[in-house]
Every structure is written in structure tokens, then in C-alpha cells.
């Protein structure tokens, strides 16, 4: 028991260091992915087929292949055609494009789910279009977006662990390193799983809370 406490004290700094990298990667990929999701998701609701087709290919391609394979492709295959990314860049880019593809489907779904009548009713009442969007349409879309986006954020956080395979020193990588240095995989991997849980649980709780809060906006 005593030994376990000592070991926790020894490995904790490098695990916390790893957790910081995990959060940084998740935040950067998340922001980039959110922009991609909003842009791609709304553009795919337009009538322009020429615009829609390449975006559909992007979304289906990223959803249809495995994130881990995409990561390997970006890091090991791309240099063969002259595109060199460092592990962190490749990781953030792949995670962002991946979560962006899934997120765009959420955005698109939310936008197409609002009945046209809502906007027409606002027009009939003489409400300016931008007010209609801000006060009527977007709040209703929010309700449909909150839970799936929360799930995507959790998937993204968990997905950062894939970067350990290309030697990004995030939490899962730090875990493997400390296990190979100090042994005791049960304690260290258990601790690391608990750390991921501590990071992810607030996102899940927050999404549930926001979901309840936005329910009242739905007609």
C-alpha cells in the first residue's frame, strides 16, 4: 500500500503533464473542428450541387474510415508524397477533420429539422430575418445540437489517446512510458482511466444540463 502511494507520487507529475497535452490537443482540434462543422454543415443545406458534392465526399470519407487509420495515413503515408507534418500537427489536423465531419452532420440535421413554417410565421409577423434567426430558429436548433455535440466532445477527448501511437506525449503515451519505466500497470493504467473519467464527466454533465435548459425554446 505504502509503495503504491510512493509510486503515485513519482508518476503523477508526468501523468499530469500528459493530461495537459491531452487538453491542449482536444481544445485546438475541438475549436478547429467546430468551425469546420459549422461551415460544412450549413453549406451542405444549400441548393448549390457543385458546392455540396465535394463536401459530401469529405464527410462520408471521414465518417467511413477509421480515425486511427486516418492518423496513420496523415503521419506515415503523406510524407511519401512530400507532405511532412510533425506528430502534433498531424494529430490535431486528423482529429479536427474527423470531429468536423461528424459535427457537420449534427449542424445539418439541426438546420433541416426546423420547419420552414417557423421562418414564414416570423415573416408574416413582420419580424426581421436576423431577429427570427437569433430569437426563434437558432434557439430551437440548439436543443437538437447540445447532446450530440457533447457526445462528440467526449469522443474527441477520448480520441486524443490515439495520438500516443505517433509519439505525441499526451496522457495515454505518458501512461505507457511510466508503465515501462516503473511497472505496476494496474495502478498506473487504472489511475489514467480515472483521470480521463474526471476530464470527461463534466462534459457529459454539462451537456445534460444545457439540454434541459434549452428544452423550453422548442415550440
Amino acid at each position: 500500500m505504502r509503495d503504491s502511494f510512493d509510486l503515485i507520487g513519482i508518476v503523477m507529475p508526468s501523468l499530469l503533464q500528459g493530461a495537459t497535452v491531452t487538453l491542449q490537443v482536444a481544445a485546438q482540434a475541438g475549436l478547429l473542428g467546430l468551425v469546420v462543422a459549422l461551415v460544412v454543415g450549413s453549406l451542405r443545406t444549400t441548393e448549390n450541387r457543385l458546392l455540396r458534392f465535394p463536401l459530401t465526399v469529405y464527410v462520408e470519407f471521414f465518417r467511413g474510415t477509421s480515425a486511427f487509420v486516418q492518423l496513420y495515413w496523415a503521419y506515415f503515408a503523406l510524407p511519401m508524397i512530400g507532405v511532412r507534418l510533425d506528430p502534433l500537427q498531424a494529430g490535431i489536423l486528423v482529429l479536427a477533420l474527423n470531429v468536423g465531419a461528424y459535427g457537420s452532420e449534427v449542424v445539418r440535421g439541426a438546420l433541416t429539422a426546423i420547419p420552414r413554417g417557423q421562418l414564414e410565421a416570423c415573416r408574416a409577423l413582420g419580424i426581421p430575418t436576423w431577429v427570427a434567426y437569433v430569437k426563434v430558429l437558432i434557439p430551437q436548433a440548439m436543443q437538437r445540437v447540445v447532446l450530440p455535440m457533447g457526445n462528440l466532445a467526449i469522443d474527441l477527448l477520448k480520441g486524443t489517446s490515439l495520438l500516443s501511437a505517433i509519439a505525441v506525449t499526451e496522457l495515454a503515451f505518458a501512461a505507457r512510458q511510466t508503465v515501462s519505466a516503473f511497472g505496476n500497470p494496474m495502478l498506473i493504467f487504472g489511475l489514467v482511466l480515472l483521470m480521463y473519467l474526471v476530464l470527461a464527466a463534466p462534459i457529459a454533465a454539462g451537456a445534460r444540463y444545457l439540454n434541459d435548459r434549452t428544452k423550453r425554446y422548442v415550440a
Binding site: I154, K158, A175, F189, G190, L193, L197, A200
Partner: peptide, 18 residues
Amino acid sequence: ESIRLTPLLVQLFFAFFV
């Protein structure tokens, strides 16, 4: 909840080494 909120990859490590 604990299984769903933690990465499958780390769960694999855990099982494989423990």
C-alpha cells in the same frame, strides 16, 4: 458510464497488461 467516458485504447492497454 465509466466505460463509455474513457478511451477504448487505454482500456485495451489496461486489459493487455493487467
